[in-house]
Write a protein that binds this DNA or RNA. Structure first.
Length: 492
RNA sequence: GCGCGGGUAGCUCAGCGGUAGAGCAGUUGGCUUUUAACUAAUUGGUCGAGGGUUCGAAUCCCUCCCCGCGCACCA
């Protein structure tokens, strides 16, 4: 891509260009090549050993010039380490080169010895400094970093360079995702990849993104869920299987929604939703203990004050949907007329509710506003009305509800779990009932697979982004997604 | 899509009808254990874009663009 055309290049950029020219004039590779490193900057500082030879590379993040000597910090995603360069160690010419041609923001390699300064700072006494890459633009404010949300998201690299907190979140996310895979592999789940481009977008109720397959001249959709393919694998004999990857939903963006989001789905043959709840509870606690220092998760604001505390101590509450709604909206809620429900909701401060809706929609609205958004500690909501969940088994004792849980933590749904519906005849009818109102196509290939026999199974989905938000205390999904979707920035 | 808030130097922000400001970064110096180093001097702006009101607009009005928050759709 070409750099954006500018009326007149700012002085800042001109100086850096001039420095680049000077380096090249002297035959120094401004954009260097291989540099063998013995340590990463942050790793060296963490496991510091004094008096050893080291070769470390990184970006210059700050510097403190003191005449004939200079301290500077180099760093990367692992952290930073201080370097000390003295005029007496290098030639006058080289020292001047460092002062005048090397900037904060440049990548350099340092060769030298580890030592500790008077003030106790682990440092590298630099003997050779190797320019590795010239930065033609300056870094954000060294103290405040980038705070402009738009720059944070559009130029995430600047956020990562300058904000410790962002760096920590994304490193933690990566480790958590790896640990989730380990956890499932350790329980003999096989990871698979199923189509992201689908002919019939199924497995959830959501508007899909559309695309076109030129070679076949056919409309395709980005998947809204992998569920119907993973169930085909249950039919095929994969008795423990999972997929951890992206879903796409063509809907609004918000603090809790990114149109592409990461979902874990796992299916376990011969299990039921309660066994899946045990699995999820154990897995999330495992992550919290491994990465968050325990089961008490504190969310903090900018100043470090605790704004929210989530207690993951087991066992987690398991309560039926109706009990929760009754507890929040009144014991008589389910006996009320539509109008009475709306009136009751208004009196409880819920105004986004309309008498024109079906009863189950009114119930769901009351649930979302009065229960879900106010539940921070984990709650497995069980016995959910069947209208809301067409792919789960109906309860034997009460066929108006399904054998599922919906796990609520941090005021959001983090994970649903089902006893999966494996009766092809009932499944067809349930899909038809839903398709009627949503005008969705039926995935006949999926039903064909079910007709060949799918073992009874438990299944889960876990919204990974929201899970990471909950565990890291991020307030917005954009703080746990490296490159969140933003509107195209037009010339103006 | 609707409502509210925001967009000023590379970054963080102040200014809110009367000559465009500060800190950091940058530039030129001083300083060989500093760490938001210190210190002297100094450069840097189509005030998001376009239109209007006014003697005069970063500031008031209109339209548009982008970001954030809330609502709606949804996980």
């Amino acid at each position: 891509m070409q750099p954006a055309p500018e009326h007149s290049e700012s002085e800042l950029l001109q100086f850096r260009r001039a420095k680049l020219d000077e380096l090249q004039k002297r035959g120094i590779a401004a954009f260097g090549g291989k540099f063998e490193v013995s340590h990463d900057p942050g790793t060296l500082r963490k496991n510091f050993v004094e008096g050893i030879d080291v070769r470390v590379a990184g970006r210059i993040l700050s510097r403190r010039e003191m005449g004939k000597a200079t301290f500077f910090d180099i760093g990367d995603i692992t952290g930073r380490i201080q370097c000390y360069l003295s005029k007496s160690d290098v030639s006058e010419e080289d020292y001047a080169l460092f002062i005048h041609q090397i900037d904060i923001g440049d990548f350099v390699g340092v060769t030298g010895q580890s030592f500790v300064t008077k003030k106790g700072e682990p440092s590298i006494h630099v003997k050779v400094l190797t320019p590795l890459s010239k930065a033609l633009r300056p870094l954000p404010d060294k103290w405040h970093g980038v705070t402009d949300r738009e720059i944070k998201y559009r130029q995430r690299y600047l956020d990562l360079i300058s904000n410790d907190r962002s760096r920590e979140i994304f490193v933690t996310r990566s480790k958590m995702v790896a640990e989730i895979r380990n956890y499932l592999h350790g329980r003999d789940f096989l990871e698979v990849e199923t189509p992201m481009m689908q002919d019939v977008p199924g497995g959830a109720a959501a508007r899909p993104f559309e695309t076109h397959f030129n070679a076949l001249d056919q409309k395709m959709y980005l998947r809204i869920a992998p569920e119907l393919y993973l169930k085909r694998l249950l039919v095929g004999g994969f008795n423990r299987v999972f997929e951890l990857n992206r879903n796409f939903r063509n809907e609004g963006v918000s603090r809790r929604h990114n149109p592409e989001f990461t979902m874990l789905e796992a299916y376990w043959a011969y299990a039921d939703f309660e066994q899946m709840a045990d699995l999820v509870e154990d897995m999330i606690c495992h992550l919290a203990e491994k990465f968050c220092g325990g089961l008490i998760i504190e969310h903090k604001d900018e100043e470090g004050a605790v704004t929210k505390t989530i207690d993951l101590t087991r066992p987690w509450k398991r309560v039926s949907y109706r009990e929760l709604v009754k507890g929040a909206a009144g014991e008589d809620w389910f006996t009320l007329s539509k109008e009475a429900k709306v009136e009751r909701a208004h009196s409880l401060g819920v105004h986004e509710i309309h008498a024109g809706d079906e009863h189950h929609e009114l119930d769901q609205k009351a649930f979302e506003k009065l229960v879900e958004e106010k539940s921070f500690n984990p709650t497995f909501v069980t016995h959910v009305p069947k209208e809301l969940v067409p792919l789960a088994k109906q309860n034997v004792a009460d066929d108006s509800v399904v054998d599922v849980y919906e796990l609520i933590i941090n005021g959001q749904e983090i994970s649903p779990g089902y006893s999966e519906l494996n009766d092809p005849i009932v499944q067809r009818q349930r899909l038809l009932d839903q398709a009627g109102e949503e005008t969705q196509k039926i995935d006949e290939e999926f039903l064909l697979a079910l007709e060949h026999g799918m073992p009874p199974a438990g299944g889960i989905g876990i919204g990974i982004d929201r899970l990471i938000m909950m565990l890291t205390g991020a307030e917005s999904i954009r703080d746990v997604v490296l490159f969140p979707q933003l509107k195209r920035k037009t010339e103006s």
